[in-house]
Each structure stands twice: as structure tokens, then as C-alpha cells.
Design a protein around this nucleic acid. Structure first.
Lengths: 176, 176, 176, 176
DNA sequence: GATGAATGAGTATTCATTCAT
DNA sequence: TATGAATGAATACTCATTCAT
């Protein structure tokens, strides 16, 4: 519900109704509405970081690493669609909220990891040296992760076709 | 304020305080909080559609058109940063709100216009034929417009450098 | 508008809109919303009392007087329908409002006048002596004046047919 | 409070104050201010209709039925004075309000029931044939029910004396 | 582990009235 | 005479949270 309606727009009563209990009873399980958000987001971010780290640590070369990160991103969008949407929608708001510093931290870790891969690719001659690594990272990140706003499992696309199409565009560009 | 805090998170009192009047006095100027949002969004979307249409109608070839649309997007992000952020944040929520049908309509118009340009480029041989036009449009749109979430005027980048970097990546791809 | 929507439910803006000016401008003509009500009600009540007094003062016998008062009531309902409705709806509320003491006073004057006629009729042997004069007055008053809530000029009834039907019932009763 | 001050003039805070809780807490018990009105009115109207129906169904002849309906009306004014006042004051306003259609329906049912009794009395020769049944109903209804605006339990009158006096006037008329 | 009643701060909106222009 | 901007108090309603049971 946080993902689809937004955290602020979701009432504790909404959640309790969906759970089949009264709103007051939720406080037996969570200390606050924010605590529910924390649990959802930290679980998601921990898992994502672990998988990203694993990809890079066991990687062979920068291009394979970048392709792997992108493919894993699309798989994550497929597997944890609502968590991704929640993160996309609320991350900027949470950046300033006390107790949610871990969200910005995890984001910075991810950014550093991706940029290191891009820079390694430029150093090895695999990637164009004239591209700004930070900028390139953001363009890729936004293009990939925004997919969550329109991707629907069971629709025309699978995580695999999305990755394939995206990588084709990213590798060789749009020009024939 | 709608752009930075979100529409629902912005109170009428916030706005009135910023305007230096009492919250009730705002209703002399706007019939409702939603009416303020309508005025902001419809003005922005009308202008954007007009400029996009002008670019395509006076265009010479598909590649120049696409480059022009992208450059205009970055200029719009620079010039109307808050309106763009507002649109990015609220468009999906507004899709279901009565009275805001015009937002989804304008979005569909834009999408159709961009996709026509991509298809024309494929037909003329300028763009790779194996790319899915709708998917390519969305990857580009998201990569370009998400820039608004981190772009700050007066920072390291200008709309021109952003467009230049983005087009370099888009044209030839990341591989050397 | 006071008669149809109620005084409290009618806004100063409603009145100004109907008058084709802005609400603030009404205060050039009336000191307050209550002042408008005063003007409407006092005019109505003054006229009604004058006509009732005239009927009784120039009357010949109690039955003719009572019939005359009733016929004049139905004519008033026809001629000043909205004023009557306003009075019926707001009188009890106004009884406690400062500045509207004249409404209760006029009502008491009327009541005394009608009761005198009934008592005179009982004294002369024209009316049944066993009826409680005050109670009889109230039954008649309510039966007659409540007509305003459903009477519509141009409908099935005229003030004359209403008076005729009412007097037939009142004079001889319902039993055959 | 709805009966004495009017529904629109009664604030939710008034009610909460009288209940000794905060205004927001009322919404734990009622979904809206209108829901409170609905509960009050539907209970009253259901009971009244049931008693009226019972009187007519177990009745012996039209005159006894009519007398019974009138006596029951005065008893209801005594027993449920505030509910009657509420109904008298708000019925016309509620006729147009969504969700309160049941009020007009119940009123129409009552009207039809009373008129059938009057027409039966005319057919049997008990009531004067020259009286308009619908008109006679309205004169009686208004004379009887308006009593609520001035009746006070514990005062000079009881429901029994009121019924007796009213029926004397209605049966034989005012003339000696 | 859940209920249900209550809190208290807040939210958009309404409206009679004022007043400089 | 009228405007239009503003006030300030009030209004119905919302909602995260608490807590005795």
C-alpha cells in the first residue's frame, strides 16, 4: 500500500483493514507507522546491496559487471516491484527524515559501486573515455529503475527482454 | 511547495504563510487547493506541448528532431525545474483524479509525438531498426526527465552540457 | 432566498450573486445580514397586523370576524408566500435573538386578537362554549398557516377555495 | 440538539461537548454528522409507520381509525417530542438531500394511509362527502403535528386532553 | 494478541464582515 | 455605488497514537 498509494497517503487504518484487525492492534506489532516503512525498506536495500556487491566481486571484466548490474536491476524490478516503487517514490522525501539515514547511505554505496565499474571500464578501454562517469551512472540508473513505474509482470515484457533491449541501446547507441 | 514537499504534504496554511496572508484568504484567489495545482500544471503542459510540436513541425530529419526534443527537455528542466518536478511526482497520482484528465492526455500526446519521431528515424535508416520504439522512448524519457531530481541550476552542469553528454551516450552507446 | 433556503443557510454571497454585485457591496445597503431579515419581517408583520386589526374593528359579529381572519390569512399566504414561509420557519429561532423582539411581540398581539374573537363568539352563543379558546386558536392557526409549506400559486387551489374548504370543516366538523 | 437548534445550526462540537468527549471522537461512533441524523430519523419514522399501520389494520370503522390516528399522533408528540420536532423542522430540507430519500417515502406512505381512512369514512357515510380528502388530511395533519412547537410535557395539557379537545373541534366543528 | 474508545493536533474550506480604493 | 482583497473565527472531518480491558 505504501508503494501504490504513497506512505503519507496510506493510513494506519488502511493497513489494519487489509490485515483484518483494528488499527490500534497494529501497534502490538510495530512501534509506529514509520517502523513499518523501515522494515520494508531496510530489508529491500540490504538484499539489493548484497546482490550488487556479489556481482562486482565475482566479476570478470567491467562490461560484464555493468551488464550484470543492469540485468540484476531489471530482475529486482520484476521480483520486488512494490519495494522498488516504494523506494523510488519515497527515497528523496526520506533523505531528510530522522531515522532513515540508512536509505541515503545505501544509495551512496550503490552509486559508488556502479561508478567504480564505469571508471574501470574506461580505464580498460572498454568504455568511451569521454563520458562523465557520474553523469553516465545517473542516466543509466534513471533509465533502468524508472521502468518500475510502468512495468507490469505478465505483460509484453520480461526482465530478460527489458535488459536485452536496454543493453542493446546502451552498448551501441541509437544510431544505425 | 507542491514540487518540493508534494501536493498532499503541502497544506493550504503553508502556502498562505508563504504568501503572507491567512489561509482563508487564499480562497479569494483560488476555488480550492486543487485549482492551484491545475493552474500550475496546465500552464506547464500547454507550453511544453507547444514547444515539442514546434520542434517536430519545423524539423528537417528524425535525428535532428530527436536531438531537438532532448535538448528542449533539458532546457525545460532548467527553466521550469519546479513545474517539471511537480509533474514527475504527481502525474501518476493525478491519473485517477477527477478533473485532472488533461494531465494524462497531454502525456499521451507527448508519447505519440516522440514515438513518431523514433519510427521515422528507423524508416529512414537513421536509427537502428531492431529497437522497440515504445521501449526506446520510455528509456530515453526516464533517463532525461529524471535528471530533474538531482539537477541544480548553478551547479556543475548546464542544460547544454547535460544534453551534450546525454546525446553522446545515446548516439553511439557506452562501448568504445 | 431566506424563505426557501433558510436564513442561516443563505450566504451573503448568495444574495449578492442574485443581485449582480459583490458581497462586500451589500454592506453599502444593509448594515448586516440580520438587518435584511429585519426589513423583510417587520414590513410583513406590520401589514398583517394592520389588516387583522381592520377586520376585527370593522366587524359585525364574531363568526364573521373569524371567517374574515381566516380568509385574510389564506389571501396573505397567496400574496406574500415567501414572507409567510420565512416567518413560519424562522420565528421560533428569532424568539431568542437580540433585536428581533418585535417578532414575538407581533405574534402575541395576533394571538390575543384572535382569542378575543373566539371568546366573543362563545359569549354570544355562536361558538361552542366547551372549547378551550387558546387551544382552539392554536389548532386553527397551525392548520391555516402551515398551508404555506405546500401551497403553490397556479395550482389546484386558490386562496378562496382553500378558505371555503377550511371553513366548511371548521364550522360543521368532519362528521356527516 | 438537532431538534432544538436545527441540524445545520448544531455543530459536531456542540454534540461532543454534551457527550463529554472531543469532537473527533464522535467519528468513532458515527461516520458523519448526517449519519447521526439518519439514525434518529429512521428509527422514529419506522416506529411511527408501524403504529399507524397497526391502528388501521386492526380498526373497526373509519371514524374510530381516524380518532385513533389522531390520538396516537398526540401520544407520539408527547413521547418523542424532540424526534417529532426534528422531523417537522428538517423534513422539507431533507427532501432534496441524497441519502435521505427514506424521509419523503415514509411521509408519502403516511399520507396515503390517512387519506384512505378519510375516503373510507366518506364512502361509509360517516364523514361529510363534500370535503376534499387530500385537503382535509393536510389541514388535520398540520393542526395536529404543529402542536409539537408549543407543547411542553408537564404543562397544562396532556396528550389525552389535547386529543379530546382536537377531536371535539374536528368532529362537530366550532359552531354551536 | 486483539478490541474499542478516546485523544489532540491538524486539514481544507466557509463565511460575515471590513475597508482602502 | 461598487470593487476586490483580506480577516478571523468557525466547521466537518482525519488520523497516528494510546491504553484499559
Amino acid at each position: 500500500m505504501f508503494a501504490t498509494k504513497g506512505f503519507a497517503q496510506t493510513t494506519v487504518r488502511d493497513i489494519a483493514d487489509a490485515a483484518g484487525i483494528l488499527s490500534g492492534s497494529l501497534y502490538h506489532h510495530f512501534r509506529s507507522k514509520e517502523a513499518m516503512l523501515t522494515e520494508l525498506l531496510s530489508g529491500f536495500l540490504d538484499g539489493l546491496n548484497a546482490r550488487f556487491t556479489e556481482i562486482v566481486e565475482s566479476g570478470v571484466d567491467p562490461q560484464a559487471d555493468l551488464d550484470g548490474l543492469i540485468a540484476e536491476s531489471f530482475r529486482t524490478i520484476h521480483r520486488e516491484r512494490l519495494a522498488v516503487a516504494l523506494y523510488q517514490n519515497e527515497a528523496s522525501f526520506l533523505a531528510t527524515v530522522e531515522g532513515f539515514e540508512f536509505v541515503a547511505e545505501r544509495s551512496r554505496d550503490n552509486e559508488a559501486l556502479w561508478i567504480r565499474v564505469i571508471e574501470a571500464g574506461q580505464a580498460s578501454g572498454a568504455f568511451q573515455a569521454s563520458l562523465d562517469p557520474a553523469l553516465t551512472y545517473r542516466f543509466i540508473r534513471d533509465g533502468v529503475w524508472s521502468t518500475v513505474s510502468w512495468y507490469r509482470p505478465g505483460g509484453r515484457h520480461t526482465p530478460e527482454t527489458l535488459a536485452e533491449q536496454y543493453l542493446k541501446l546502451l552498448h551501441a547507441g541509437i544510431l544505425a
